[in-house]
Write a protein that binds this DNA or RNA. Structure first.
Lengths: 148, 148
DNA sequence: CAAGATTGAGTCGTCAATCTTA
DNA sequence: TAAGATTGACGACTCAATCTTG
């Protein structure tokens, strides 16, 4: 008997959307979102201020997006803009103390949410899923790249 | 040895995003997107015009979203608004002939893209993935619901 | 000219408030 | 008052065009 073969794609996308919504709802309790937390993580892990272009590259998104994201983070008081002494075209994103605190909180919330989601899977299941997604993700190709 | 347990979540979300981008890029060749195609599918499958609220429910999204989505579809000439004879508050979404053609094209493009994505997995892999996602998706809970 | 960032317009989604009709 | 739809404001993303500086 034939089941619609590619129905699995929809299942995958829906599951992902569902999980994302769940994690976002947890992060929201700290005034954060996944994009904001990702930006804070990159800034904290870099250990220094990053030019916006650098940040865009690490976030695998377009520069204009980072412009706006950093603007929102500035409004929240989690990041500040500073002029780049070595290049007057450039602009550095600096994480604030409040930003570091929010990040710590966000990391904990996200980890907790992820554990909740993945708690229903056995270790073997989890490994198997990783393999399958690897194959899937690897083949699809073309993550965001900067246009020429 | 310990691997970061919930790293799998990120892998899942990234894989899904990647696949979604891929499918969207195919649909774009017909001037469509996943949300637009979903709306057309529901209208065509319903076999009759639907009130916007009905459509919102079937799309599992908020009504205000459908208002805008239908507006874009109207701009594209794929859907038309008609007054509801039985309730003057209501408004019916009617799929046009162009809408039916676009839908047929979109369905084919999407199916093709999905087959491409899933071609990299064996039948067994595919079944296994379905099981795992079932467990995962079932647990997460709270799809969109209309607020009271 | 090329590189860094920004702005403007467009898609897609949310929520809260509003307007009309039941 | 409830229900149907719309509007306005916002988050997050894209692209194309622009401005400034190298």
């Amino acid at each position: 008997m034939m089941i619609g073969v590619p129905a699995g794609v929809s299942v995958l996308l829906k599951a992902a959307a569902s999980i994302e919504t769940f994690i976002e709802s947890r992060l929201a309790t700290a005034g954060l979102s996944l994009p904001k937390l990702a930006a804070l993580n990159h800034l904290a892990e870099a250990g220094e201020a990053l030019p916006l272009g650098q940040l865009a590259e690490r976030l695998a998104c377009v520069k204009s997006n980072v412009t706006q994201l950093v603007h929102r983070l500035e409004t929240d008081g989690l990041v500040e803009r500073a002029p780049d002494p070595s290049d007057r075209r450039s602009c550095l994103a600096v994480i604030t103390e409040a930003g570091r605190r929010a990040r710590a909180q966000g990391v904990a919330l996200k980890l907790d949410a992820e554990r909740q989601v993945f708690g229903v899977l056995s270790s073997d299941d989890w490994i198997k899923l990783g393999e399958l997604l690897q194959k899937l993700g690897g083949r699809v190709g073309d993550p965001v790249r900067e246009r020429r």
